[in-house]
Nucleic acid binder design. Sequence first.
RNA 1: GGGGAGAUUCCAGAGUGGCCAAAUGGGGCAGACUGUAAAUCUGUUGGCAAAGCCUUCGGAGGUUCGAAUCCUCCUCUCCCCA
Length: 410
Amino acid sequence: MFENIFDELKYRGFIEQSTDETVLRNLLGKEKVTAYIGFDPTADSLHVGNLVQIMALYLLQRYGHHPIALIGGGTTMIGDPSGKTELRQMMTREEIEANAARIKSQIGKYIDFSENGPATAVNNADWLLGLSYIGFLRDIGRNFSVNRMLAAESYKMRLETGLNFIEFNYQILQAYDYLELHRRYGCLLQMGGSDQWGNIVAGIDLIRRMEGNEVYALTTPLVTNSAGQKMGKTAQGAVWLDPERFKPYDFYQYWINVDDQDVIRFLKLFTVLHPDQIAEYEQLHGADLRKAKQRLAYELTAFIHDRQSAEDVQNAAAALFGAGHAKSGMPETILSKAELGEGLPITVLCSKVGLTASSSEARRMIRQGGLYFKDERIINEKYLVTVDDFESGEVLLRAGKKRFHLVRIQ
RNA sequence: GGGGAGAUUCCAGAGUGGCCAAAUGGGGCAGACUGUAAAUCUGUUGGCAAAGCCUUCGGAGGUUCGAAUCCUCCUCUCCCCA
């Protein structure tokens, strides 16, 4: 559909800012380019905020370029102040290493890191942790102008509230990463979120000074919803890509529930659907837009998790919100008869299976008429759930309109 | 190095001895209306086998019948001067 990845990136809305478009486009059109994106292992799973970067790597791979996923095991020891309002909590080395390992395998689900595979995973701890301070200052540090760094947009916010020296160095290390990857792999392009522009450009300058080579930058927009909020925050916290931390069912529902105004933009960014097809969805209005949302949720769940779970959760959701009730794919908890005992108050059951955060919350919800048991609104907050309630060993709980939970008994 | 301000519940931010599980706003959740959307209105928003009890106002002690509020020490943050 596109000859040049640059055109596809542009069409899909990945490009916020880039170094000379014409030059970069030509380069991507004529040779296999090594490009990298960094991920800092600040948690043990990536979340939807990282999705744009993952898709970018995926597209690079699809076009036969050479994507490098850089895991920032070294830089995370420092913490990136870009766009942040305060000093990040210092993490221990063990935490960072454990996170790095998990994130690497997570990205490995989407990008092929196998031996002789199309993509490469590296960890900057490998070259950053062993650096000697004086040597680094003399070789690398002298290429940086403090005046220039202070003028950078990414530090602006922090200059007002306070910027710790350790964080001030982050940019230098990221620039050094680029240099290192340029030397090791001939890396010519660094991509990243728009907040990374300053850091990336610092790397470009460094490579120009040290190697005399021209390299490139491309930043993606910060993806927000139409309300202007950062993506991926829910009451349960971030929308993690790890199915253990965020169930595929909830993941699917998350995308079903995006604003009307966001659907098309997200289809472009987060799926690889053909532009013609996206154009068709673009024609939809009003309630019909749900079709587009379903497609978005399905494609993404299939990509991030797998096709089987995507189908399961799609069927479950379709059934739940249509007629009848399919039970597969929805979150469920298996309870032993012993746990149920003589019966559990409904409030306790809800908190036990995690449908509500506490039994107080369940109680509150009952008072407000928001809790359903076997499709009926619960009025009695002291209702005792006993074995007799379970029809063919299971019972359906629902909080509000959208959150379902199946309880099975064994 | 000197001086000053501050740390409150998810966030912002009131409260400066009992009326405080703590104003108000944001966010979240629920209800109504809808299309599993948005907007709007209403309610709710520490926990618990709940008209009561328990834990919470940076940390540790203390004063008091009673402390988020007063005292001592500690930790951290910010501002001004050098």
